[in-house]
Each structure stands twice: as C-alpha cells, then as structure tokens.
Design a binder for these strands. Structure first.
Lengths: 264, 264
DNA sequence: CGCATTCTTGCGATATTTTGCATTAAATTG
DNA sequence: CAATTTAATGCAAAATATCGCAAGAATGCG
C-alpha cells in the first residue's frame, strides 16, 4: 500500500484511543472502515492498547477499562480462565509441608483456589478474601497478617503488617505484581504496598511472580525489588519468546501456563 | 454506519447491569425490546452476570444480589431478618468516632452491615468476612487482628491474636455469644475462643452482648466472663419479661430489638 | 550499497463466540 | 389442573477472533 501518506500505526492507535474515550466504545468494523485498513490490523491495535490497560478488549471491538474499583467478584471473574491457567502452573512450584506467603490480588486468589488440599501447607496471607477461600477448603494451616486494612487494595498493609512479617520465614512467596520488567524488576502502584511486597520477598527462600501478559515489560510507580530477588516467573502461553529469553538470561526460572486442560 | 450502530455483547451486559442498579430490577422482555435482540440473548447475558455474582437470576428477569455479597450464604441467611433487627438495635449503642471491637459470627456480621458509614468509626475485627464487608462500604477505618485462622470459627484466635489485643483500647466491644445466663454469665464452646473473648472485653470500656433468643439462659463449655463485665445486652422482642428483669437486677442495660421497620 | 532483521500488513484456514430458532422442560397463574 | 409464560437445551448460521504465513516497507549495520 501507499506509505507514509496514510496514518502511521501508532498514530492510528492514538486516534482509536481518542475515539474510544469520546464514544465509550469502538467496534472493529467501524474502525477498519474509518482508517481504511483491514480488521486484522485494527484487532492488533486493540490488542496492544488492551495490553497497556487503556482499553478492554471485547467481542466485536473494545470498551473503556473497567472502573478501577468495580465490585470485587467482578474483578475476580475477569480473565478468570487465564488466571486459572496461570494458577495451575503456579501451584506446581509448591511442595508438601511448605510455608507459603500469599499476597492479595485476583491472580493470587486464583492460586488459593488451585492449591492442593491436605498437603500440610501453611498459608500466610494479608488478604481476607484469600483467607476465607482457604477456610472453606480443608487441610490448610492459615495465618492472617494483622494490621490496617487498605480498602483500595483489599488487604492489610502498613507498619504493623511489616512487623509481623519480620517474625516469619516462608519457603515460597507469591507477591502480587503490578508490573514486571526484565531490566527494571518488579513494580507496585502504591508505596506502602511496595514496602510490604519487598518484606515478603525478604523473608522467603524463594519468590514466584505470577503475571498476566499485560503486566509484562511494564513499569509502575514504585519499585519493589530488582529482578535478582526473584526465583520464578509464571507467564501465559502467548508471551513472546524474546521476552522469556530476556528473563532466562537473568537466571530466572520461567514457567508457561497451559490454557487448556481446565477442570473437568 | 450499518453494523456498528448495534451494541456489543459486553457493552450490553454492562448496560443491563447499570439499568439493574438504577431500577433495582430488570425483566427479560423489557431488555429484549430495549436492545433489539431476542430474549434468549438477554437470558444468556443475565446468566453470565449472575455467574459473576453481580445479579440474582429470578423468574422473568433479574434482581440485585442480596444485600452484601455473602460467601457463607446459608448460615447468614438463616434468621437473617431477626438478626438484622438485632443489629439495628445494637448499632444504636455506637457513637461517632468510637473504636469498636467486633468478634466473628453471623450476628456480628449483621452488625457490620448495619453500622453507619462516615462516622469516623474504627472497627477492629478478627473475622475476615466482616473486614471484607466493611471494605465494600465507605468511611471505616478497619483493623484486622492477625494470627492463626480457625476454620471452625471462621476467624483468628490464639496467642498471637491475644497479644495484639493487649496493645489495644476499644470503646465498645461486641463479643459473639454462644450462651448467656443471668446467673453464670457469658459462655463459649471453645477454650481458645473463650480466652479471646475475655481479652476483648478486658480491653474495652463497654461491652454489648447481642443474642438471639435461643442463646438466652443457656450455658456452654467454657465461661468467658461473669455477668458484671458486661454493660449492655441486646435481645429480641419476644423474650420473657422475667428474664429481662433478671439481667436488669444485675445492673445491665437491656435493649430490645424491634423486628418491624426493616429497610424500605 | 548490500544484506539481514524487524515491523506491519493482508490473506486464507481454522477456531470461537454470538445469535435466533425449534423443541422440551419448568414455573407461574387463575 | 390447564393455560400461559418463562427457561433450558441443542443446533445451524453468521459474525468475529486467532493463527500461520508471506510480501512489502522500514531499520540497522558492516
């Protein structure tokens, strides 16, 4: 096709975003006609934008991202199939009798549901929903971290929580990740949250970061740790091989989740 | 503008949810007409939304989910009308700015749902379900007691929890009651539980025991405290006058719940 | 410049999702 | 209980997504 006279890919993506913000929704067919490109290209654009978290991919087009504080059950349902696949891969790192440190977050909630019962596991968590989920199952020793509850995060953070972590040693910890980057490490959106995650990692022998694809290669406001503090990363199947290699080069054990093989 | 004028499936589901939240109810026929799709599609939408827990599927359409999203549906549903009445009476004892100590239990969960928002209340609790319930609302400072979770009780008890209570002073506490008797005081079914409740009462200026009628005049395995450690008892309307008098004679302030006057 | 590499794009083949309809089952109503 | 309304299920068609691929364009490098 003709070259630079048409809109550039990035330029087009920006325009899509503008239009989305104005109308609240965009459809693939509509955009394809508007920019004179195939729907495939539009889908790829939308996919990228969704990976940045600035839109939500839906069947037929895209919508504005879910309001940040949508009801918790809804957030949990979102991408739940993907998160369950991640969780299934993550729990393979767990050995019977271990002490686990489980941070808050919807991905970690999925991990809690995927943990095997009656394996003498001790789970330490700062998230009440995770504690409740595990109580409903059997054969877990559950320790709740106490302290000030942060409603925005849905978990306990702060000085008192840090103090309790100091008196603890865990075998494996799963810090919730806001963003992970091969060069700059692990990031969080809140400073207190970052402190808590850092302490979690410090008191654990091993650390496994479990992330959906949209969090890979991204940064956020506060650094939690450099990458060398992390032992394992569990990612989805669709991650670019180059990115996986970038992590492997830093001596991190990479694990890919198998999206198939759900529960019977 | 041929195809793009239609609403996207997800967009429609979001719109249904919005409409449901505004009107409190939606019907399938109404929605089918509104969006110009068959009722089958609407039913599928409602089914999905219900699976996410954001609405309740009923014959003919859908309603809002029951008051506060309930992970322990059964026990809480039981006697819920009576417990709500008790809770409404109990929260009358609460003053703005106070620090409350809220034990686990279905009655106390009802109290949590009945607490007034934005009154600068600080709620300290050992029950993750109560913490979650309060997080879903606004204007509360929430402190979670940490320690070993006891699945049978659904809350944290034990040495670590006791230790945290030692560093706390509360204005008013609501210990969950297994049994109360005018002569022998307050009782619990578990020894650790009894210890925890006793400490709760010790660190609080006032104590209010909120009980359903079946727990009055009963005993249990472990005594928590004698009756003189208790300031208030909230009971249901149908309690025998003689029993109320027996408590009054011991200088306890008695409060009766009004079973009528539910939420509009 | 030559050449390899990466990025983007469109296309075809193949899933997956959505939709409406027909049929059967269940709930509600009088 | 019978009549009506609403649900659930299975199915085929249409719309939309995904995947791999190859061609063209841009980019980087010797």
């Amino acid at each position: 096709m003709s070259t630079s006279a048409e809109t550039l890919p990035q330029e087009r993506q920006q325009a899509i975003l503008d239009r989305l913000r104005e109308h609240g929704r965009v459809t693939a067919t509509e955009l394809a006609a508007l920019f004179g490109v195939s729907e495939d290209s539009i889908r790829r654009d939308l996919h990228k934008l969704a990976a940045q978290g600035v839109c939500r991919r839906v069947y037929g087009g895209a919508l504005l991202p879910t309001p940040a504080f949508a009801p918790l059950p809804q957030r949990r349902e979102e991408n739940s199939a993907r998160k369950q696949a991640l969780a299934r891969a993550a729990v393979k790192l767990v050995r019977p009798g271990q002490v686990l440190l489980l941070d808050a977050g919807s991905t970690n909630y999925a991990i809690a549901t995927a943990l095997p019962e009656r394996q003498q596991l001790t789970v330490v968590t700062n998230a009440p929903d995770i504690a409740q989920c595990l109580m409903a199952r059997e054969g877990f020793e559950i320790l709740m971290i106490g302290g000030r509850m942060e409603p925005r995060i849905g978990a306990v953070i702060g000085a008192q929580a840090l103090e309790q972590l100091r008196r603890l040693r865990a075998d494996l910890c799963f810090p919730g990740a806001c963003a992970v980057d091969a060069e700059y490490g692990l990031w969080a959106t809140d400073s207190e949250e970052a402190l808590f995650k850092r302490r979690m990692i410090e008191v654990s022998s091993e650390t496994a970061v479990v992330v959906t694809t949209d969090k890979l290669g991204a940064l956020s406001a506060y650094q939690v740790v450099e990458l060398d503090a992390i032992s394992h990363i569990v990612v989805e199947k669709d991650v670019a091989a180059a990115q996986i290699e970038a992590f492997r080069a830093r001596e991190i054990q990479m694990h890919e989740a198998d999206p198939t093989a759900g529960s019977p």
